[in-house]
Each structure stands twice: as C-alpha cells, then as structure tokens.
Design a binder for these strands. Sequence first.
DNA 1: TCACCAGCTCAAGGGGGCTTGAGGTCAAGG
DNA 2: CCTTGACCTCAAGCCCCCTTGAGCTGGTGA
Lengths: 148, 148
Amino acid sequence: MPQLLGIGEVAARSGVSVPAVRYYETRGLLTSARDGGNRRRYPRSVLRRLAFVSAAQRVGLSLEEIAASLAELPEGRTPTRSDWTRLSRSWRARVDARIAELERLREDLDGCIGCGCLSLRRCALYNAGDAARAEGSGSRWVREARGS
Amino acid sequence: MPQLLGIGEVAARSGVSVPAVRYYETRGLLTSARDGGNRRRYPRSVLRRLAFVSAAQRVGLSLEEIAASLAELPEGRTPTRSDWTRLSRSWRARVDARIAELERLREDLDGCIGCGCLSLRRCALYNAGDAARAEGSGSRWVREARGS
DNA sequence: TCACCAGCTCAAGGGGGCTTGAGGTCAAGG
DNA sequence: CCTTGACCTCAAGCCCCCTTGAGCTGGTGA
C-alpha cells in the first residue's frame, strides 16, 4: 500500500504551492493518478521529484530542461537506485559546470580588483563584455552566458 | 575629450541589444547624456557598467538588485579604482555565497547518490524539500532559495 | 441534512525582462 | 532634394513561471 498523498499535503511538504504543483503537471514535470472524486493522488516519490525540481531551478534550469531531465525517470514504477544515480550524476555535472562558471567569474572579478578597472585594455571583466574587441580572444563568458 | 559612444556602438560592444540598453536606463541602471539631436551619448565606462550588469544577472541578481549595487558608483565622475574595488569586493561576496550554495547542493546530491534515494528518511535531497519534516532541522536550503 | 472544505477546471492577471511595431526626427551622402 | 539609416518615444506584445478568481463537485463531520 503506497499511501498516496493529496495535492494539499504534497504542496505543504514540498514547499511548492498547490497551483504550482498543478502547473508542473501541465508542463509535464509530474503526473498524477485520480481517485473516485477526480482528485489527484500522488505517490510519496513525488516529493523527491519536487525537491529535484526546486533544486534544479535554483541552478538556473528552465522547467522545460528539468522536464527533459525528469523524463529519464520511470513514471510507472518507483525509481530504483540506479535510476536516481544516473539522474543525480548527470545533474551533478551541470552543478559542477555552473560552479566552474562562477569561479571563472570570480577570477575575472579578482583581476578587476587588481587592475582597478582604470586600464580598459587590461580589465578582464570589461574585455569579456566588449564583443567588438573580444571576438576571437579567450574571454567570452558573457556571450556564452547569453546563449545558453 | 572622453570620446562618447552612440547607443548602437554601446549595444554592439556590450552584447546587449539597443532596446535593452534603453530599458536599463528606465530601470535606473544607466544614465545618458544627449547630443544636439537628442541622441544618447555614453562615456566608455558604460561598457564596464554593462559588463557588470550581464555578469550580475548571470549570478542570479535581479535588475533591481543590480541597480542598487551600481547606485554606489558615482554617476557624475569616472569611477575611481577604489569605487570599483569596493563594488567588486561586495559582489565577490555574493558570488562566493552562490558558489557555496551550489556546493552544498552538490554535497546533498552526492549523499543522494550514496543512499540511492530508496530510503526516504535518509535522503538529504528529499528531506531538504520536505517542509513538514525539516521544520527546525538543519537542511532548509530549498525554502531559503524561494525566499530570496 | 447541511455546511464546509479540499479539490477541480478554465481563464485571466501579474512581475520580470525584454522585443517589436508604429510613427516621427535628425544628419549625412548621392 | 531626397533617401537612408541611426535614433527617438510611446505602447503593446511575449516568454517564463506562476497566482488569483470564478464557478462547480464530492467526501466528511456536527
């Protein structure tokens, strides 16, 4: 007996609002069974899915990307250890990438402090943003940022 | 002779669109002088401001927060080294915080891989999101995330 | 029996961050 | 002189991510 949850309880426990939970369903992040009175019933694993969604948003992923990621989990059965392991690992890579990006940014910022930003030609932060000049150079994180 | 830039050149060099530059002005992130024909004229330092804006957005700050941050820079004169140093340092703290947050997340994720997420009671990611249970416990990054 | 409250659906609204479009103004070049 | 192109000012529209509201249903307890 899997002990199904109502949407209210799901919302309370996940910290996601009731309408948001329904919205996620329309966006394909979640599915639900219905009881006799047409009310949504969720297995406890939905809490894990929602925790995953919230965390992924925090990392900057769109709901669509998150949905794609979650689509790798089986809807029909309870995810196994290896299901989650695969997902967690792939996601960890994204977290790592994001951290690396921020660290690069931090380095630029340090360089910026160092140069005092008085010399335009030497300022990493400035040059990173100067598309007309940085074309073909090494520092182009701003453009990459806009593309992703 | 500061060699002023037109909005088109500013846009091309900063990688920010022309309307976006104007929009930033309405949001108080930028100011501009006008020439005889009422066209905006920018000092070169606007490129630094825009690079800063793009970078700050990347870190997840809203335009309002960025505006508040930039408000500490002098509008009238060219920012001095210490102006930028102060700003960069305060911002670096935010970057550090964001990195720390992601690292915490990564640890949770590692724990999640370790436990295989089969035991709900032991899963860090799950418990972090379970508001009803985590109340008063140590792991509440999800709620903090939503509040900020 | 009846009130209540949790849910349901569908439609509209709202904030953030721009983009797009309409219509008008210079300044320069052929 | 007339076109072209860079700018200008609104105003409206868009995408994302939800929130809010209206109107209806169904199980539950006094």
